[in-house]
Computed example of a mutant assay.
Amino acid sequence: MKFTLGKQERLKSRKLIERLYKEGNSLKAYPLRMMYLQTEHTSNFPAQVGVSVPKRNFKKAPDRNRLKRLMRETYRLQKGIVYDQLEMPHIFMISYLGKEKWSYEDLYVKMEKLLTLFIEETKTIKNDEI
């Protein structure tokens, strides 16, 4: 698996994003929250991901952009956790909930926790259906 986060792996579809927020489930590992939904998407990858940082908490665009860049980087390096376990295609939106800037190292740990929580959650849902 390549540790890239190309165009095909990014969640861009407005319709899918709207559907995600209407029908999706949520997980939290403060300061990160993941909305996820098991659905078909246009990519060949097992997951498409988007990141967001609210303007309400960070007024300056460079601050928001830096946090989004850090979140994408931590996801990119750890997406193997998700890709190895997923059987059905999913879409994610990872939002930053904190009001203060976190360091890269702290975000890396929280992203790992969030992704493992997601895998555990999908395994329990899958076991409940069986």
Rank of each mutant, 00 (worst) to 15 (best):
K2M: 06
F3Y: 06
F3R: 07
T4D: 13
L5P: 02
L5E: 07
R10T: 07
R10C: 11
R10E: 08
R10A: 03
L11E: 03
R14D: 08
R14I: 05
R14K: 14
K15V: 12
L16P: 10
I17H: 01
R19P: 09
L20E: 15
Y21A: 07
Y21D: 13
E23Y: 08
S26P: 11
K28Y: 13
Y30V: 07
P31W: 04
P31L: 03
L32M: 09
R33N: 03
M35K: 02
Y36T: 10
Y36D: 01
L37Q: 04
L37M: 04
Q38Y: 09
T39Q: 04
E40Y: 09
T42Y: 08
S43T: 12
F45L: 11
P46E: 02
A47W: 09
Q48L: 01
G50Y: 12
G50V: 14
V51D: 08
S52C: 15
V53E: 03
N57E: 11
K60A: 13
K60Y: 06
P62W: 02
R64C: 08
R64E: 12
L67F: 08
R69F: 01
R69N: 01
R69G: 05
M71W: 03
R72P: 00
R72H: 00
E73D: 07
T74G: 03
T74C: 09
Y75T: 03
I81R: 05
I81K: 02
I81N: 02
Q85K: 08
Q85W: 05
E87Y: 04
P89K: 07
P89A: 09
H90N: 13
H90L: 15
I91C: 15
F92D: 04
M93L: 14
I94M: 05
S95K: 01
S95H: 00
Y96L: 10
E100T: 09
Y104S: 09
Y104T: 10
E105I: 08
E105T: 09
Y108H: 12
V109I: 13
K110L: 08
M111K: 02
M111L: 02
E112L: 05
F118N: 03
I119G: 12
E120R: 13
E121I: 05
K123W: 10
K123N: 14
T124C: 10
T124R: 10
I125E: 15
I125Q: 15
I125R: 13
I125S: 12
K126L: 11
K126D: 11
K126A: 09
D128I: 03
E129I: 14
I130L: 13
I130N: 13
